[in-house]
Write a protein that binds this DNA or RNA. Structure first.
Length: 212
DNA sequence: AAGGCGGGGCT
DNA sequence: AGCCCAGCCTT
Protein backbone atom coordinates (compact mmCIF):
# COMPACT_ATOMS: atom_id res chain seq x y z
CA UNK A 1 0.00 0.00 0.00
CA UNK A 2 1.10 3.50 -0.70
CA UNK A 3 2.17 5.41 2.37
CA UNK A 4 -1.19 6.12 4.03
CA UNK A 5 0.11 9.29 5.62
CA UNK A 6 0.73 10.72 2.20
CA UNK A 7 -2.20 9.19 0.36
CA UNK A 8 -4.85 9.62 3.05
CA UNK A 9 -3.98 11.49 6.23
CA UNK A 10 -2.33 14.59 4.84
CA UNK A 11 -4.83 15.23 2.05
CA UNK A 12 -7.64 14.67 4.51
CA UNK A 13 -6.17 17.24 6.89
CA UNK A 14 -5.84 19.69 4.03
CA UNK A 15 -9.44 19.10 3.03
CA UNK A 16 -10.47 19.67 6.63
CA UNK A 17 -8.69 22.99 6.95
CA UNK A 18 -10.70 24.32 4.03
CA UNK A 19 -14.00 22.51 4.55
CA UNK A 20 -14.26 21.35 8.15
CA UNK A 21 -17.10 22.21 10.52
CA UNK A 22 -14.82 24.38 12.61
CA UNK A 23 -17.68 26.31 14.15
CA UNK A 24 -19.22 23.42 16.08
CA UNK A 25 -19.39 24.73 19.63
CA UNK A 26 -17.78 21.75 21.37
CA UNK A 27 -14.70 22.23 19.20
CA UNK A 28 -13.90 25.56 20.81
CA UNK A 29 -10.35 25.10 22.12
CA UNK A 30 -11.39 26.60 25.44
CA UNK A 31 -13.83 23.80 26.22
CA UNK A 32 -13.22 21.90 29.42
CA UNK A 33 -12.81 18.15 29.49
CA UNK A 34 -16.21 17.96 31.16
CA UNK A 35 -17.83 20.00 28.39
CA UNK A 36 -16.29 17.64 25.87
CA UNK A 37 -17.51 14.58 27.75
CA UNK A 38 -21.06 15.97 27.73
CA UNK A 39 -20.82 16.72 24.02
CA UNK A 40 -19.64 13.22 23.20
CA UNK A 41 -22.51 11.64 25.11
CA UNK A 42 -25.02 13.91 23.38
CA UNK A 43 -23.51 13.05 20.00
CA UNK A 44 -24.12 9.32 20.37
CA UNK A 45 -26.38 8.29 17.50
CA UNK A 46 -27.35 11.94 17.12
CA UNK A 47 -26.48 14.28 14.29
CA UNK A 48 -23.97 17.03 14.95
CA UNK A 49 -26.40 19.66 13.71
CA UNK A 50 -29.03 18.53 16.21
CA UNK A 51 -26.57 18.70 19.09
CA UNK A 52 -25.24 22.05 17.88
CA UNK A 53 -28.68 23.57 18.41
CA UNK A 54 -28.93 22.44 22.02
CA UNK A 55 -25.39 22.32 23.34
CA UNK A 56 -24.60 25.78 24.64
CA UNK A 57 -27.64 26.14 26.93
CA UNK A 58 -26.96 22.69 28.34
CA UNK A 59 -23.33 23.27 29.28
CA UNK A 60 -24.18 26.74 30.54
CA UNK A 61 -26.61 25.08 32.94
CA UNK A 62 -24.39 22.11 33.75
CA UNK A 63 -20.78 23.27 33.48
CA UNK A 64 -19.46 20.81 36.06
CA UNK A 65 -20.29 17.50 37.74
CA UNK A 66 -21.30 19.47 40.81
CA UNK A 67 -23.89 21.36 38.78
CA UNK A 68 -25.28 18.13 37.35
CA UNK A 69 -25.58 16.47 40.74
CA UNK A 70 -27.24 19.55 42.19
CA UNK A 71 -29.88 19.54 39.47
CA UNK A 72 -33.13 17.63 39.48
CA UNK A 73 -32.72 14.55 37.27
CA UNK A 74 -36.05 15.36 35.61
CA UNK A 75 -34.73 18.78 34.67
CA UNK A 76 -31.68 17.22 33.04
CA UNK A 77 -33.94 14.83 31.18
CA UNK A 78 -36.13 17.64 29.91
CA UNK A 79 -33.11 19.27 28.34
CA UNK A 80 -31.87 16.07 26.74
CA UNK A 81 -35.24 14.77 25.56
CA UNK A 82 -35.46 16.90 22.38
CA UNK A 83 -32.36 15.10 21.12
CA UNK A 84 -33.86 11.66 21.62
CA UNK A 85 -32.39 8.77 23.62
CA UNK A 86 -33.42 10.50 26.83
CA UNK A 87 -31.84 7.76 28.92
CA UNK A 88 -28.62 9.65 28.34
CA UNK A 89 -29.77 12.13 30.97
CA UNK A 90 -29.46 9.39 33.54
CA UNK A 91 -26.08 8.42 32.09
CA UNK A 92 -24.88 11.99 32.60
CA UNK A 93 -26.19 12.13 36.16
CA UNK A 94 -24.60 8.83 37.12
CA UNK A 95 -21.33 9.76 35.46
CA UNK A 96 -21.25 13.06 37.29
CA UNK A 97 -21.75 11.26 40.59
CA UNK A 98 -18.93 8.89 39.83
CA UNK A 99 -16.58 11.69 38.81
CA UNK A 100 -17.15 13.29 42.19
CA UNK A 101 -16.96 10.04 44.15
CA UNK A 102 -13.90 8.52 42.49
CA UNK A 103 -12.06 11.18 40.52
CA UNK A 104 -12.20 14.36 42.60
CA UNK A 105 -14.69 15.80 40.14
CA UNK A 106 -12.20 15.61 37.28
CA UNK A 107 -12.56 13.77 33.99
CA UNK A 108 -10.03 10.92 34.22
CA UNK A 109 -7.20 10.54 31.72
CA UNK A 110 -7.14 6.74 31.89
CA UNK A 111 -9.13 4.81 29.30
CA UNK A 112 -10.29 2.20 31.82
CA UNK A 113 -11.54 4.89 34.18
CA UNK A 114 -13.50 6.55 31.39
CA UNK A 115 -15.12 3.23 30.50
CA UNK A 116 -16.25 3.00 34.10
CA UNK A 117 -18.57 5.95 33.55
CA UNK A 118 -22.11 4.92 32.74
CA UNK A 119 -22.89 5.77 29.14
CA UNK A 120 -19.23 5.89 28.12
CA UNK A 121 -18.08 3.14 25.79
CA UNK A 122 -15.05 2.69 23.60
CA UNK A 123 -15.95 5.45 21.18
CA UNK A 124 -16.79 8.09 23.76
CA UNK A 125 -13.79 7.26 25.94
CA UNK A 126 -11.47 7.56 23.00
CA UNK A 127 -13.08 10.80 21.89
CA UNK A 128 -12.41 12.35 25.29
CA UNK A 129 -8.80 11.18 25.20
CA UNK A 130 -8.39 12.63 21.71
CA UNK A 131 -10.11 15.98 22.11
CA UNK A 132 -9.59 16.76 25.79
CA UNK A 133 -6.21 15.16 26.44
CA UNK A 134 -4.49 15.32 23.05
CA UNK A 135 -3.94 11.60 22.57
CA UNK A 136 -3.02 10.73 19.01
CA UNK A 137 -5.40 7.83 18.57
CA UNK A 138 -8.65 7.38 16.64
CA UNK A 139 -12.26 6.77 17.65
CA UNK A 140 -14.22 4.54 15.29
CA UNK A 141 -17.85 5.53 14.91
CA UNK A 142 -20.21 4.83 12.05
CA UNK A 143 -18.59 7.56 9.93
CA UNK A 144 -14.99 6.55 10.48
CA UNK A 145 -15.91 2.91 9.94
CA UNK A 146 -17.52 3.73 6.60
CA UNK A 147 -14.73 6.01 5.43
CA UNK A 148 -11.85 3.69 6.30
CA UNK A 149 -13.70 0.65 5.11
CA UNK A 150 -14.21 2.24 1.72
CA UNK A 151 -10.86 3.88 1.26
CA UNK A 152 -8.73 0.95 2.37
CA UNK A 153 -11.19 -1.71 1.22
CA UNK A 154 -11.36 -3.54 4.53
CA UNK A 155 -14.53 -5.17 5.88
CA UNK A 156 -16.54 -2.69 7.96
CA UNK A 157 -16.85 -5.11 10.86
CA UNK A 158 -13.20 -6.19 11.00
CA UNK A 159 -11.35 -5.79 14.27
CA UNK A 160 -8.32 -4.64 12.33
CA UNK A 161 -10.14 -1.48 11.31
CA UNK A 162 -9.76 0.15 14.72
CA UNK A 163 -6.05 -0.67 14.81
CA UNK A 164 -5.63 0.74 11.35
CA UNK A 165 -7.42 3.93 12.39
CA UNK A 166 -5.14 4.30 15.41
CA UNK A 167 -2.07 3.83 13.25
CA UNK A 168 -3.24 6.61 10.94
CA UNK A 169 -3.60 9.22 13.69
CA UNK A 170 -0.84 11.75 13.06
CA UNK A 171 1.51 12.94 15.80
CA UNK A 172 0.29 16.10 17.51
CA UNK A 173 -2.79 16.28 15.29
CA UNK A 174 -5.01 13.49 16.57
CA UNK A 175 -7.96 15.75 17.35
CA UNK A 176 -7.76 17.49 14.03
CA UNK A 177 -7.52 14.16 12.21
CA UNK A 178 -10.55 12.77 14.03
CA UNK A 179 -12.59 15.83 13.13
CA UNK A 180 -11.36 15.59 9.55
CA UNK A 181 -12.58 12.01 9.21
CA UNK A 182 -15.96 12.85 10.72
CA UNK A 183 -16.48 15.96 8.60
CA UNK A 184 -15.36 14.31 5.39
CA UNK A 185 -17.62 11.31 6.00
CA UNK A 186 -20.51 13.67 6.68
CA UNK A 187 -19.94 15.85 3.64
CA UNK A 188 -18.41 13.69 0.90
CA UNK A 189 -18.06 10.03 1.86
CA UNK A 190 -21.67 9.85 3.01
CA UNK A 191 -23.63 6.73 3.81
CA UNK A 192 -26.27 6.85 1.13
CA UNK A 193 -25.13 8.85 -1.87
CA UNK A 194 -21.40 9.46 -1.55
CA UNK A 195 -20.09 12.35 -3.60
CA UNK A 196 -17.43 10.32 -5.33
CA UNK A 197 -17.22 12.66 -8.31
CA UNK A 198 -16.23 15.48 -6.00
CA UNK A 199 -13.96 13.38 -3.82
CA UNK A 200 -10.35 14.58 -3.83
CA UNK A 201 -9.14 11.03 -3.19
CA UNK A 202 -11.27 9.38 -5.81
CA UNK A 203 -8.29 7.95 -7.70
CA UNK A 204 -6.77 6.45 -4.59
CA UNK A 205 -9.93 5.06 -3.04
CA UNK A 206 -9.95 1.29 -3.05
CA UNK A 207 -13.71 1.05 -3.46
CA UNK A 208 -15.24 4.05 -5.18
CA UNK A 209 -19.01 4.09 -5.07
CA UNK A 210 -20.23 5.95 -8.07
CA UNK A 211 -23.76 7.07 -8.66
CA UNK A 212 -25.17 6.42 -12.04
C1' DA B 1 -25.45 -11.94 19.59
C1' DA B 2 -29.39 -9.41 19.36
C1' DG B 3 -32.83 -5.89 20.78
C1' DG B 4 -34.14 -1.41 22.30
C1' DC B 5 -33.71 3.33 22.60
C1' DG B 6 -35.77 8.17 19.85
C1' DG B 7 -36.57 12.52 17.74
C1' DG B 8 -35.42 14.68 13.47
C1' DG B 9 -33.47 15.22 8.88
C1' DC B 10 -32.95 13.47 4.22
C1' DT B 11 -34.27 10.80 0.17
C1' DA C 1 -42.26 5.07 3.86
C1' DG C 2 -37.55 4.04 4.83
C1' DC C 3 -32.87 5.02 6.10
C1' DC C 4 -29.61 7.19 8.91
C1' DC C 5 -27.51 9.68 12.75
C1' DA C 6 -19.85 11.45 16.77
C1' DG C 7 -23.28 4.30 20.64
C1' DC C 8 -24.30 2.13 24.67
C1' DC C 9 -26.79 -0.73 27.95
C1' DT C 10 -29.48 -4.68 28.90
C1' DT C 11 -31.00 -9.32 28.13
Amino acid sequence: MLNPQRSFVRPLLAWHEANGRHQLPWRDPDRSAFDILIAEILLQRTTASAVAGAYLPIIARYPSPEAVVAAHPEAVERRIAPLGLAKRAEFICRSAERLLARHSGDVPHRYEDLLGLHGVGAYTARSVLIHAFDEDIAAVDTNVRRLISRFFDVPPDSDALADLADALAPTQRGSEFQHAMLDFADDVCTARTPQCEACPFRERCRSPVYED
